[in-house]
Amino acid sequence: MSKRNLLALYGNFEEAELVVKELRAASISGFNAGDDMVVKSPIEHPEVEEFLGDKPVYVQWFTLVGAVMGGLLGFFLISGGQANFYMQLKGGKPIVPFPPNFILTYEMFILGGVFITILGFLVCAGLPAKRSSLYSRKVSEDNIAILVEVEEAAVSAIRAIFVKHKALEIQEEAGK
């Protein structure tokens, strides 16, 4: 059965929250409130997370791996480089001296952490991506949008809920 995408715009967060709650409460066949609903907002909203329910964030695992790998890579690259370089003493210090290597390891630890965190962000947030065609520039101003993906049969029920809460605008298109 083919799917359809629906996008409704609301002027304030309270309204949007009510809509989401109602959508979650209503058991409409062909619509799963947990997976098929996306809320788009102009600012970061702790409330959105509250009413959408807890969704895990995995970025910090990338951070951990990146930082540890960065540090290890730093230390072994540097020590290995020093050991492979001509066996020449400098300033009476050991060929593999610890204090400088720790400083560089520390920098590499941060470098790895930052770079892989960014990578993790892109992966977890699904960026860069093509914008979905159901998008309103109002979202980047002050509106909050609710995007749902439903079976064709459920469209009218959803639409009714949107209208009931005085959606400012409703867009609809055929889903994939």
Binding site: K93, I95, V96
Partner: peptide
């Protein structure tokens, strides 16, 4: 060659 690398002068 660890001990060699830690040799000071």
């Amino acid at each position: 060659n660890w001990s060699q690398f830690r040799h000071t002068h």
